[in-house]
């Protein structure tokens, strides 16, 4: 089954659509003219609402995407016309490129360790903020502030200062008797440092969680309290299910973002992926191959390997989501 189809079946109104199709099949040609007219009207409305998106998708996104898929099977240095090389790029990737392998490893560590921590921090803080309203504007803004910083050399300077020898992180850890020295130049601690940078900028998922928490009707908590539920119980049986659609969104998007980590690593390492390749994350490496080394064919092949991997993960998430994600608008 192709990924496209898989996501289709898990897609937006998939369940409803399947129901509709089944009904249509059952009804077959004997489907009443009124129903058919209604269905047509729905289609017109659907595509009508989608007009801007369709123009953007067909006009701006689809073509370049397909072109990059084609480039994945070519040798292309941006200057001469692409030259078809079949699967060469993919073979080189998996058999003859130690940098690629290292890049995959550190990216996986970054994704698998960083994403859960970031989401937990975002959800935890969002719930803390939602707990009382006092000064919440101040706190919300403070917690979001780190996420405001764009990818400029200032971030590199600040972050290096935080994690250098005798910097604030080193000093606070030493206070607790943990003597790690500076993180910036320590090959073993660079990936953790990058993870902490990502966690520090947890503002986006936090705000989305907050918006989701605001959508939960207060009556549900009151009802749970009437039933004698404690805070843990309320969290498990009201917050989590009611927030599940937002958790699902954040989980999926943060995973995708983490796999595509680029700006912070690029800035911190000045585009080199150093020290010792420890910030040479997947997309950083892809970018270097494409634009610095002018191996756009290879870079495109790398991009599509990533697409396939992330698509499989997304597919699994969508599949399992039917079991744990609850939509108030679709639960009937």
């Amino acid at each position: 089954m192709t990924t496209t189809q898989s996501i289709v079946t898990a897609g937006a109104d998939a369940k409803a659509m399947r129901r509709e199709l089944r009904r249509a099949e059952r009804g077959g040609p004997s489907m009443s003219p009124g129903r058919r007219r209604a269905a047509r009207r729905e289609s017109v409305a659907g595509y009508g609402f989608l007009v801007p998106w369709l123009i953007g998708f067909l006009g701006l996104t689809l073509g370049p995407m397909l072109y990059s898929l084609y480039l994945a099977f070519t040798k292309y240095n941006l200057f001469k016309d692409p030259e078809w090389v079949g699967f060469d790029n993919f073979v080189r990737m998996f058999t003859d490129d130690p940098q690629f392998m290292q890049s995959v490893q550190i990216t996986l560590v970054y994704v698998l360790v960083g994403t859960p921590i970031k989401l937990a921090a975002a959800l935890g803080i969002a719930m803390l903020l939602n707990y009382r309203n006092k000064g919440s504007g101040f706190f919300r803004s403070s917690f979001y502030a780190p996420s405001l910083i764009g990818a400029s050399v200032s971030v590199a300077i600040v972050w290096r200062a935080m994690f250098s020898t005798d910097g604030p992180v080193d000093n606070s850890l030493s206070f607790f008797g943990i003597d790690l020295g500076g993180w910036v130049g320590n090959v073993a601690l660079v990936v953790p440092m990058m993870i902490l940078l990502a966690v520090w900028q947890f503002g986006a998922p936090m705000v989305i969680f907050l918006a989701g928490l605001k959508q939960i009707p207060q009556e549900l908590y009151e009802a749970a309290e009437m039933d004698g539920a404690g805070p843990v119980r309320k969290f498990r049986s009201v917050t989590i299910p009611m927030l599940s659609s937002v958790i699902f969104f954040n989980l999926l998007l943060e995973l995708i973002n983490a796999f595509q980590i680029f700006a912070s690593a690029y800035i911190i390492s000045n585009g080199s992926g150093g020290p010792a390749g420890m910030t040479n994350f997947y997309t950083v490496y892809l970018y270097k191959r494409g634009f610095a080394d002018l191996q756009m064919g290879y870079a495109s092949a790398m991009a599509w390997v990533l697409v396939i991997v992330v698509a499989i993960i997304a597919f699994i998430l969508f599949k399992t989501s039917t079991r744990w994600v609850h939509y108030a608008g679709e639960n009937r």
Binding site: T61, P64, M65, Y67, S68, L71, L253, I256, Q260, F262, T283, L286, Y287, G290, F291, M296, A299, S300, A303, W304, L306, V307, V310, A311, A314
Partner: peptide, 8 residues
């Protein structure tokens, strides 16, 4: 969402 934007 899945394709790194650099290649497009």
């Amino acid at each position: 969402l899945l394709l790194p934007f650099h290649v497009i």
